[in-house]
């Protein structure tokens, strides 16, 4: 059954639909949250609370174009909000870690030229700062749209585009250096 159908059933109070949604989204939510939340138990508490609140507020929740987006947003918000409560006395910074290592599925790539290119793409992605890596993770790995990503990360569409421009700039810089040096490297 489609997410949207399950979502509507759940909003009508169907426990099975709710359970299926929890079952389906638990792992992606954990895998995402674990990249910026070091405490796995705390993360699981946050996910549980999001789902619990969802059930309690089911009458008030509207239908959503993407359940995944809704849940990612809710869990991310909860983690950052609760983490702030814990570290009240510490300096609040905008910085956080996003642990990710991008890979290229080599099965799909069999062409030598694009193989080289994809290695470059991988290196560039892995060299980006955390925030930009989170965007790339949500975009390429979770397949979310730019609008959805800006809402998940709690930033405006404009600042998301600015961040993307930054990424592309490092793409370009990297690209040029790679294009200049790589051909020579092969001969060394």
């Amino acid at each position: 059954m489609e997410d949207s159908e399950l979502w509507d059933l759940f909003r009508a109070g169907n426990q099975l639909a709710y359970t299926q949604l929890v079952n389906k989204h638990y792992k992606p939510l954990f895998n995402y949250g674990r990249r910026f939340c070091q405490d796995r138990e705390f993360l699981m508490d946050c996910i549980q609370e999001v789902f619990y609140e969802l059930w309690n507020r089911k009458e008030k929740i509207s239908s959503t174009p993407s359940v995944k987006w809704y849940l990612f947003k809710a869990v991310r918000l909860r983690i950052f909000r609760d983490q702030a409560k814990w570290t009240k006395n510490e300096e609040i910074t905008d910085e956080y870690n996003f642990l990710v290592e991008f890979n290229i599925e080599s099965k799909i790539i069999n062409d030598l030229e694009i193989n080289d290119l994809s290695v470059k793409v991988k290196n560039i992605l892995n060299a980006l700062p955390p925030r930009q890596q989170e965007i790339m993770y949500l975009r390429f790995y979770e397949g979310l749209t730019l609008n959805q990503i800006s809402e998940i990360m709690g930033i405006t569409n404009q600042s998301l585009r600015n961040l993307l421009q930054k990424s592309y700039k490092s793409f370009r810089a990297e690209w040029i250096s790679l294009l200049v040096f790589l051909p020579y490297l092969k001969f060394i």
Binding site: V100, N103, I104, E105, I114, L117, S118, V121
Partner: peptide
Amino acid sequence: AILISINVK
């Protein structure tokens, strides 16, 4: 091909 082959460890 490159875009869809991007994956995450």
